[in-house]
Design a protein around this nucleic acid. Sequence first.
DNA 1: GACAATAGTGAGTAATTGCTCGTTTTTGTA
DNA 2: TACAAAAACGAGCAATTACTCACTATTGTC
Lengths: 215, 215
Amino acid sequence: MPTLPKPLRPRKTPRQKRSEETRELILESAARVFAEHGYAAGTTNRIAEAAGLSIGSLYQYFPNKDAILLQLARRHLDEGRLAVAAAFAAGPPATWRERVTVLVDTALSVHRGDPRLHQVLFEESPRPPALLAELRALQDDLVDRLTALLRADAAPGAPDPRLTAWFLVAAVESLTHRYLADQPTRDRSAFRDELVALLTGHVLSAGARPAEPPA
Amino acid sequence: MPTLPKPLRPRKTPRQKRSEETRELILESAARVFAEHGYAAGTTNRIAEAAGLSIGSLYQYFPNKDAILLQLARRHLDEGRLAVAAAFAAGPPATWRERVTVLVDTALSVHRGDPRLHQVLFEESPRPPALLAELRALQDDLVDRLTALLRADAAPGAPDPRLTAWFLVAAVESLTHRYLADQPTRDRSAFRDELVALLTGHVLSAGARPAEPPA
DNA sequence: GACAATAGTGAGTAATTGCTCGTTTTTGTA
DNA sequence: TACAAAAACGAGCAATTACTCACTATTGTC
């Protein structure tokens, strides 16, 4: 008798290097197919074809279509987590202008790939609650960090710092995404500067009082 | 012989009052079904069932599933167009704070219905290019109006007023939508005030110089 | 070269879904 | 009541699609 009656859902654990490469190939192809055709028309057969594999092989590596999508989405989230961690690794920058700039640049770089794919992953497709929870956790973490910074700098009568922090995060994310989704006729650095100015101004007027212009 | 060999796609022209009511009933049911199940799982059979009609009747009134969705989306757009027109009907308010307040309140009221339906209509479903064009036209119209107002008030060295106007429109739309999509733990008026403050501050610092605080 | 573990294949299946069309029911009018 | 126009019906068809499984091919090891 074989080792086990049935290897259950997760099909194949990579033993040979070839296997890992194939897995990667499927994910890359899926990213392209989803970006081009959207979620519904991004069929598993199409993905397999784009990868130059048979449909059977695809199902050796992923238990179902949504698992492929989920994996792609998680990678995007990980990228985001990494970017946030890196930005705060050596302590936050001294001025709010610099802090906001870091946020904006991070968002731009995370979204620099295909914005259409991002849209499919996080808006168009049926996102499982677990994924939404992760996304939310990432955002909340950022909001927490910024709230702490705001509290440290706040003038006594300043308004709710958590709300201000939420606005920072939401505005950076939403507006970056929207900017990239509209074909950007406007140039990128103008957008960047305007967004930084918008948010820096708001934070400062909301009661933050750091040593602002040391230069 | 009958009046015409085949009535072609647009199925039924309402003669009896009942017919108009049925059409309306289908749209209302579709709105509920799409909001609850999303686009893909919002099947035409489910919509018919929710309306208490047979599937055949549904197809007497709409040539296909997407036509129902399109009609719902167009109604939302019309609502938006109407709201914008109303806000600017008697000439824009005098101060930028008031102007921004009108924008924010309009966005909140247009989105006050089911935000999930809005998401299905404008993000999740396969939006035909014509619809996207209409949406864009509506936004561009708003941007045009605001740009004109900004130019009238602008200080000489002020930055690109069109970009500022774009930010206003994009920020109001995106942040309102995002606020409603996150379960709003934060209360509505706090959100409203913060958004108004954010955008008013930006417009003024971007070089607008109206007779600001007459009160 | 023998062999077994690993990787790849693709025709076919089961389920779903948008939609048709021949039929029946309801309504308004005489 | 008679009748036709309008409205409603719903079984079932055609197309699509996620996924299976019995099979073949490749690879590494002795």
